[in-house]
Design a protein around this nucleic acid. Sequence first.
DNA 1: ACCTGAACACCGTTCAAGT
DNA 2: ACCTGAACACCGTTCAAGT
Lengths: 191, 191
Amino acid sequence: MMARTKTDMREAVMTAARATVQSRGYNALSFRELAKEVGIKSASVHYHFPTKGDLGAALARRYTEEGAAYLAELLATSEGPTWCMDRYTEIFRSALANDNRMCLCGIMSAELDDLPAEVRTEVDKFAAMNVGWLTKVLSLTKSSASEQDLKEHAMAIFAAIEGAQLVARGCRNIGIYDRAIRAYRTTGLIP
Amino acid sequence: MMARTKTDMREAVMTAARATVQSRGYNALSFRELAKEVGIKSASVHYHFPTKGDLGAALARRYTEEGAAYLAELLATSEGPTWCMDRYTEIFRSALANDNRMCLCGIMSAELDDLPAEVRTEVDKFAAMNVGWLTKVLSLTKSSASEQDLKEHAMAIFAAIEGAQLVARGCRNIGIYDRAIRAYRTTGLIP
DNA sequence: ACCTGAACACCGTTCAAGT
DNA sequence: ACCTGAACACCGTTCAAGT
């Protein structure tokens, strides 16, 4: 029988931690609870992640990487901007559908003042990654607009979707998310 | 020399608590820190607010009441829907301008899973109050639309503005808020 | 009526010690 | 290399005790 390798345990901690943060936020993350979930002692968690900030930053970095990979794949197999935006809004919807969870970086933005600097950096990168992708998608529709205008529009879309998720979550009502997205489409904010 | 009355101390606690929650969230609220700020012991804070949930609910209730009063005044002296929306977006902007703070209920929505039931109730009421007001403002512009459509549009506006605040805060960049609001206007989401 | 000190089980973090 | 127990200063909450 194989013992769990170091990498396995790191992964187990990150998986458990990610679920907790998306449900209850960075502040609710507890090394003792985490340790119980993966079957080691809290002091051992510190072996893999010296501080809570290290763990938070690792979570956010991974989250951004995975998101970027998925979005790149979408764009590569794109059937057009509307199709892309359907898939994109579905990502944020699925977090809500999955036990009323939130975007990892959205929930962390709310807790900003309690985040160590290294976690804030990763939160910024996630936003920038999303805006970059949305800018590309928008450029498929409005080839005339300036890069500046596209980026501004992309940021507005990202903010509006994060907000729809936040408010729907607060009201424990995924219908609010769906109706907000529909309204964004009707007004033309989202292609 | 007058001693501080009971009401004064309750108010002092609520004022300090509100500032903390808007900056760092419900989870970061500490009875011990709060006690230090107002000059009593943490056990004494429990005299005024038996549990943290009682304090959180009181904060949110007060926040909604004050917001409702301000918005009612706006509507009463209204110079039209665009003017109303300018004032409305300015409220959320001023939280950011004031030390990168957030809407009390927006930040609490992110921490939903850690909120006692009585606090969640108040968060719901805040959202409903805002949507109610926005629906009235929208009815000034689109007299033809159904009550249902107006409410859907109002909820989308509320969500989009909360999202703009959340993302701008996360990036510590109030310009992101301003540009998002501008884009919402350009697309016609906001009158 | 309002405040306090002391206790309880929690928290992140550190560190010497184990294998 | 990986894990642990014990200690530290924190946390919300309770309660008997003070005025």
